[in-house]
Computed example of a mutant assay.
Amino acid sequence: MELLVGEELKVNHTETGITGSARLVLAGDGVFPITKDKHGNILKHQPNTGIDIAGTIQGEGKLAGTPSLFIRLASCNLRCVWQMDDGSFCKCDTSYASFRPENKSVLQVGDIVDLVRHNIGNMQHVVITGGEPMLQKEGLAELCRLIKKELHLHITVETNGTIFDKEVAQYIDLFSISPKLSNSVPSKDKLEYFAEGETGASKFHHEVRRNLNVLQSYIYFANSLEKDLQLKFVVGKASDAAEIKNDYLDLLMGYSQNDILLMPLGASQQQIAQSTPIVLKMCIQNGWKFTPRVHIDLFGSKQGV
């Protein structure tokens, strides 16, 4: 399928070599939460966590509660908008990195590694998220390679599971894959509600967004190299259970029951509270794992936490 990256977000990696000079386009706070710049100098502003040290915790999935630094890459090929169980609409909770990436910055991979180096402290985990990180797979591969070579950190990549790249995958410790259910398609009425224009992502109907070949590649790769994997479904309706089973789990091989996680839909504490009883019941009925969204409980719906 054609990958949709805005012209302003295209980065030429072909001339950059493999020494940290490739560039990546970051969104929002980029590398966060941090207290030092790439040279190790103290920054004037305090992290958005309200804590006067670098770092936060992973809020979701198997590693929820784990101290981590985050790297947020810009742009997404899906740009999800969901419908809540009450009929209201819920936009992607990181739409500032996916719909119209805000506060974009283009950084050399070496500078990103230095930001991590000076802020990682006693933490051992880096989470690379988006947007959709795999849209920038060439620079991402170099970033992961250097993080492993120079800093020896655990790397989680958060992806929607529509793009697989073996060069990137070899450096990842946890593939956090969030396959998107049909409820996430950014239909015309949803986009109009948020005053968003239609984009190429709007044409990605469910059968295109649901890329079983890519998902199976992640599972096989994780199993072959004994890497960890989670299939993390965002759920907002009781009917989602049948779709998870029929359109995904019954058609994939090689995963374990422990790899299936369900997360309540919502970009705010109020929306998550509405979805949570649905997801909790679904998890118990099917033996799937429930994952909280601890960062929203702790910090609310804001960037850089």
Score class of each variant (00 low, 15 high):
residue 4 L to K: 03
residue 5 V to P: 09
residue 8 E to S: 06
residue 9 L to Q: 03
residue 9 L to D: 09
residue 13 H to R: 11
residue 15 E to K: 10
residue 16 T to A: 14
residue 17 G to R: 00
residue 18 I to A: 08
residue 20 G to L: 08
residue 21 S to L: 15
residue 23 R to G: 12
residue 24 L to I: 15
residue 26 L to M: 05
residue 30 G to K: 01
residue 30 G to V: 01
residue 33 P to S: 07
residue 44 K to I: 06
residue 46 Q to T: 13
residue 47 P to H: 01
residue 61 G to H: 13
residue 65 G to R: 05
residue 67 P to A: 06
residue 74 A to H: 07
residue 78 L to R: 02
residue 97 A to I: 10
residue 97 A to L: 08
residue 100 R to F: 12
residue 104 K to I: 15
residue 112 I to V: 15
residue 114 D to N: 13
residue 118 H to T: 06
residue 121 G to F: 07
residue 127 V to E: 04
residue 130 G to F: 04
residue 130 G to H: 04
residue 135 L to G: 01
residue 138 E to C: 03
residue 140 L to Y: 06
residue 150 E to W: 11
residue 154 H to L: 15
residue 160 N to A: 12
residue 166 K to H: 09
residue 178 S to E: 09
residue 179 P to S: 11
residue 179 P to F: 11
residue 180 K to N: 00
residue 191 L to C: 12
residue 200 G to Q: 04
residue 201 A to R: 04
residue 205 H to Q: 13
residue 209 R to L: 06
residue 209 R to G: 04
residue 212 L to H: 01
residue 214 V to M: 02
residue 215 L to M: 00
residue 217 S to I: 10
residue 228 D to L: 14
residue 228 D to G: 13
residue 236 G to A: 12
residue 239 S to Y: 06
residue 243 E to K: 02
residue 250 D to A: 11
residue 251 L to F: 04
residue 255 Y to A: 00
residue 264 P to L: 12
residue 266 G to L: 05
residue 267 A to L: 02
residue 269 Q to G: 09
residue 269 Q to P: 05
residue 270 Q to E: 15
residue 280 L to H: 12
residue 291 T to E: 07
residue 292 P to E: 11
residue 294 V to S: 07
residue 295 H to N: 11
residue 297 D to L: 06
residue 302 K to L: 04
residue 304 G to D: 00
residue 305 V to F: 03
